[in-house]
Simulated scan of single mutants.
Amino acid sequence: MNKRLLAALAPALTAMLITGCATTTPAAVSQAPVAAYRDVIDLNGSLLVNYQKDGKPETLSGKFSWSQKGDLIDVSLASPFGQTLAQISVTPDSATLTQTDKVPRVAKDIDSLTAQTLGWSLPVSGLRDWLQGYATTPGGKRFTASPATNTVTTADGWRLTFVSWQDEAAAQPVPKRIDAERNATATTDELAIRIVIYPQG
C-alpha cells in the first residue's frame, strides 16, 4: 500500500477503531437499591450446599421452589433431576417438613428442623428477606442491597454476598446469585450455600 493511499484511509481507520472501542464499553452498574419488598412472591432456583456431616465435608446440589404469601411459606427441595426431596411449610405457629415415605415432622423452628432432618440447616427465616435483597444487621438495622453495596453480615451470623443480578443496569435490580456463609459455633456447624434465582416470568 503506497503512502498516499494510506494517508487517505487513515481518517476512516481511526474512526473505525474509535467506534469499535465504544461498542465494547461495559454497561453501567446501577447504584440503585433493590426493588421494594413484596409480601407475595413465587421464585424458582438452584442450591449448592457445602456442609459438615460427622466431621466430614459434604456437598449437595439441587433445585428449589419458593412460594411466599405474607407469613406463610412453602418450599420444595428437589434433586438436580427434579425428584422431590422435601416439602416445607411454615406458618407463624409451626413448621412442617415432609419427605417421601416418611412421617411429616413438625417443630417451632424450621432452621433446626431442617438441620435434624436434612443434615444441614436451610435458613428459611433469613431467606424470606435474602431472596429479595434484604437482611437485618447485628445492630438490628435493615440492610438493602444494590450492585454497588452487595455484602453484609446478618444478626444471626451469616455473611451474605449478592454476587450477581438479573439486570445490573435496571432501575430496581433483582438478585440473581446469593452466597451465604456461616462459621461453626458451639451450636452450629460450618455451612455455605450458593443460591441462584432463575429469571421470573
Rank of each mutant, 00 (worst) to 15 (best):
M1L: 07
A7V: 12
L9C: 11
L9W: 03
L9D: 02
L9N: 01
P11H: 03
A12N: 04
A15R: 00
I18T: 09
A22L: 13
A27N: 14
V29N: 06
S30R: 03
P33A: 01
P33W: 05
P33S: 07
V34W: 00
A35T: 06
A35S: 12
D42Y: 09
L43H: 11
N44P: 01
S46T: 15
L48G: 10
Y51R: 08
Y51E: 07
Y51T: 05
D54N: 15
G55T: 08
K56L: 15
E58R: 15
E58D: 12
E58Q: 15
T59V: 13
T59G: 02
L60T: 06
L60H: 06
S61Y: 05
S61R: 10
G62E: 11
K63E: 10
F64G: 07
S65Q: 15
S65M: 08
W66G: 07
Q68H: 03
Q68I: 02
K69H: 14
L72E: 13
L72N: 14
D74L: 08
V75W: 08
V75I: 15
V75T: 05
S76M: 13
S76W: 04
S79P: 05
F81S: 08
G82D: 03
T84V: 14
T84W: 01
Q87F: 05
Q87R: 15
I88K: 05
V90H: 07
V90Q: 12
P92N: 06
P92A: 04
A95E: 05
A95S: 13
T96D: 05
L97G: 00
T98P: 02
Q99V: 00
V103W: 00
K108L: 09
K108A: 13
D109N: 15
S112I: 10
S112N: 15
T114C: 01
A115E: 14
A115I: 01
A115G: 02
L118G: 02
S121G: 05
P123H: 02
P123L: 04
V124T: 06
S125A: 13
G126W: 06
G126D: 12
L127C: 08
L127H: 08
D129G: 09
W130G: 04
Q132M: 07
G133K: 01
Y134M: 02
A135H: 11
T136Q: 14
T137Q: 06
G139I: 02
G140C: 12
K141C: 04
R142F: 10
A145V: 06
N150Y: 10
N150F: 11
N150S: 15
T151F: 11
V152T: 03
T154M: 10
A155R: 15
A155H: 14
A155K: 15
D156F: 08
R159I: 01
R159F: 07
T161D: 13
F162I: 11
V163W: 02
S164Q: 04
D167P: 06
E168A: 14
A170E: 09
A171Q: 13
A171P: 06
V174G: 06
P175F: 00
K176C: 01
K176E: 12
R177E: 14
E181V: 13
R182V: 03
N183F: 08
N183Y: 04
D189Y: 12
A192L: 02
R194K: 11
R194I: 09
I195E: 02
V196Y: 04
Q200Y: 04
